[in-house]
Design a protein around this nucleic acid. Structure first.
Lengths: 336, 336
DNA sequence: GTGAAAGCGCTAACAC
DNA sequence: GTGTTAGCGCTTTCAC
């Protein structure tokens, strides 16, 4: 039983050391993976520690080691299921690798600078930015502070900054091929106003593949990256149901908005009247109302490689920047 | 310009102090909100600090103050859009209040113990558990360590542990009333195998309200809390399309699974053949294929109150446990 | 209002 | 393998 301990309680390594009849260093060693301690000492220490309810103070360790195992994650658009799946996977993978995610959600377009600044103050071991728009200033600051930085789906080529993305080129090609194989000759790409790098890449690859078949691609700009942008696009597209369109949406969420409105509001038949293909493979793409054919980005693999990148840079801060990409695959459902 | 600084660089308060010609304490005061420093000193220090690129080391401060501003969040089921919205809102609110969220995602049913243990080691200022199943052991440990703990949507009444939930009672009643008003006399509740506290409360209130109209409620058990459980339930329910059922799903995600399968697989007309009402108001409930009538839980308000609870307990650790609840409202769309 | 000194709990050289 | 010693960078009495 634990009876009344002083409020500020918290047992320290010294308490354990005294109880075990050893030095603080011995205690420290017992709790440092891969340190050499005799079996006997270890046992004594472990016994004392568990009796006292000792837990190592990671803040103190962090101060001493000049580094915590904290990793900052900066994210926007958590309402997109792809993003939340990404964060989920990343958080789990970080923990699995002994790192601790600090999560900073920001609103689209809002400045992440202040957040990053907080992170830096915490002596984080690294930062992962999945936000759509990481200010260059931030990146520079990380580099200056020697904090490993991984950019997800970003174009920016910065020294000492690693990047990861899915194989957008392959994804774009796959999408084009599926549409072409379905006999679509009039290709259309829905393009969010604020295209981010990964979408540009997908789109470019899509266009390139179309060109190989002498097909030209038409573009249509939609508002944001949301479901409702897809809805909006549907009114124009529904008018063109006779044209046998093959439509590529660089994001499932837009594809779903389009598809849903087309079918349930405009009475368009997909895939009879037109074909639609998305990108991401969010859970909702598999839902019955949609059965959306899409390009799957494997979030777990994504997370694995992201953390790998982080750890490589932690191990070797001076290495040249890497850009890794994870494989994608087409998931054929009913809309192409 | 910053030229070659030693790798371990990082400018300390001492550096700033020297440059400004003051003591370290002076520097400390400048960066401690509400400390008294003369204007002159403040200016000198701020100038030096910005020139040197000084940032206070929060780890050192944390060690000294015996507390960091870190707040642990333990979450499961991030694939449920309600959960991810909740985390998003919570993360933002914490930051707004000067706290820093550490995110731990766990798989359903997995033991959160190890994670909590990590958190405790970081001297966190508090913990928020939105996971469906926080082991009692964990809670006890938090209490023992004097770490404020807020349980989201949990029943457990523990000393020193605060709880928050939406007004489930009202939500359940609202749902029943809507169905009754729509003329439904045969009421059915879909019940996930592992009902969590909040669902039990909603359901109980639903039943109570039905009883007021002398209506009895039938229960149907579905697998988990997922879309596909709703799909599965649809096959039995479709058989009963003649019965004019009024169906309450304690979670939108299940309602959506049911609704989607009913309409798009079994050709059931909703709300003509039966009525369906959900709970949460996730974004997808508003999508065209669904237009689900549901009970909205306001995530922002939820987050606000959660953090409030945390801060109150930080301020007053010995206070009796509180249980706050946030208001809900019915969102009428097309399925009732 | 300001500086000197002590100490938060830990790890890492370095002797033994 | 173990203990001693010296900090990590900060805040905080306590004199002045």
């Amino acid at each position: 039983m634990n009876k009344a301990r002083p409020v500020t309680s918290s047992v320290t390594s010294l308490d354990v050391a005294r109880m075990a009849g050893v030095s603080r260093s011995a205690v420290s060693r017992v709790f440092t993976p891969g340190a050499s301690v005799s079996k006997k000492t270890r046992e004594k220490v472990e016994k004392a520690a568990s009796e006292l309810g000792y837990r190592v103070n990671l803040v103190a360790r962090g101060l001493n080691k000049q580094r915590t195992d904290l990793v900052g994650m900066i994210a926007t658009r958590m309402d997109n299921p792809y993003r939340s799946a990404q964060i989920d996977a990343l958080a789990k993978q970080l923990v699995r690798q002994g790192l601790r995610p600090m999560l900073f959600c920001i609103d689209e377009g809002k400045d992440a600078e202040q957040l990053l600044s907080i992170l830096l103050n915490y002596q984080v071991s690294g930062v992962v930015i999945t936000s759509d728009a990481p200010p260059a200033k931030i990146c520079a600051e990380c580099v200056r502070m020697q904090v490993p930085l991984v950019l997800v789906d970003r174009a920016d080529e910065l020294p000492f900054v690693d990047r990861i993305s899915s194989n957008n080129k392959k994804g774009g090609r796959l999408a084009a091929e599926a549409l072409i194989k379905a006999g679509r000759r009039r290709l259309l790409v829905l393009q969010p106003e604020t295209m981010v790098y990964s979408m540009r890449e997908r789109t470019a690859a899509f266009v390139a593949r179309a060109a190989e078949d002498k097909l030209t691609v038409e573009f249509m700009t939609v508002g944001t990256h949301e479901y409702y942008s897809g809805n909006d696009a549907a009114v124009d597209i529904a008018q063109r149901r006779e044209q046998g369109l093959g439509i590529f949406c660089p994001t499932d969420i837009i594809a779903l908005g389009l598809l849903d409105a087309l079918r349930n509001e405009h009475g368009v038949n997909v895939p009879e009247d037109m074909s639609i293909i998305g990108y991401d493979d969010i859970p909702q793409a598999a839902w019955k109302f949609a059965h959306l054919t899409t390009i799957k980005q494997p979030v777990d693999e994504f997370a694995r490689v992201t953390v790998e990148l982080l750890q490589e840079r932690i191990a070797n801060p001076e290495a040249p920047p890497q850009h890794k990409s994870v494989d994608v695959m087409i998931i054929k459902r009913g809309t192409v």
